[in-house]
Design a protein around this nucleic acid. Structure first.
Lengths: 139, 139
DNA sequence: CTGTATCCTTAGGGATACTG
DNA sequence: CAGTATCCCTAAGGATACAG
């Protein structure tokens, strides 16, 4: 079937309101691939100012992409993790990474990573998602 | 293989500089799914001001995502089309659309479209890409 | 038709000090 | 540690007029 053109409410509009922001993309990347979960961790590299970080975390939480909860062990720490809606963005980000690796010389992604993804994108995304979902429950 | 974490220069950074902008996403959507190719067409709906449109078109061309050339028939018209690098963004956008359709109630995407995509994402993306590449040569 | 050029205004970002 | 509050400032966007 050929993709349809000109359908009403083409969904990129919704996504553009959320993902159409550089810091948001970087944050999601950190959550998805760099195993970052704490406010201070997001500030380590490629970091926005604290107010900006705070704002983006709120937006992502409001959009249902992020879960925010207190660390049960250390009560004054807050733990951020992708919600299932956020985990569902894995295929999108993997496709984006694949694209970047192919077209941007500066980009460095491990060859095995790319090879495994390209061999079976769907299975690879599902495995990544499984790992992230398991992570949700951890402290 | 489990995806690696913390690799150097995680590629989302490159992409965020280009795609981390709402208007850019909307423009690419128009090129990819709405068959728009002329300046005036991009101004029809969900349109930025002309200077913004001009700026984004230039950025996308500079990034090698867009080809710009004079319409051979009507010389004063300019024809925009995705380059092969732009066409390569198909899998990313399809994944994004799939995600939006699943998580945003406002989003309306034809059921057959989604079903066909989900049945075989890779083949579907390739077919879409073929159609867009064919379009490149047309006037 | 395809853009520039200009003006204006505001939202948003960086830095930093400070609070629960 | 996890933010909020403030200040400052610039970059970016909308509107519109106009040029090639």
């Amino acid at each position: 079937m050929r993709p349809k053109k000109n359908w009403k409410g083409c969904p990129v509009r919704y996504a553009s309101g959320i993902l159409g922001d550089p810091w948001t993309l970087v944050l999601l990347r950190d959550l998805m691939f760099k195993d970052k979960h704490y406010f201070r961790e997001f500030l380590l590299e490629e970091a926005p100012a604290t107010n900006i970080l705070s704002d983006r975390l709120k937006s992502l939480e409001a959009a249902g992409i992020l879960c925010r909860r207190r660390d049960p062990v250390r009560g004054n720490q807050v733990y951020y993790a992708l919600s299932s809606k956020g985990v569902d963005l894995c295929p999108t980000f993997l496709a984006l990474i694949d694209w970047s690796a192919r077209h941007d010389a500066e980009t460095e992604a491990p060859a095995e990573f790319l090879a495994a993804y390209r061999a079976n994108p769907v299975a690879f995304a599902e495995e990544l998602a499984r790992g992230l979902s398991a992570n949700q429950g951890a402290d």
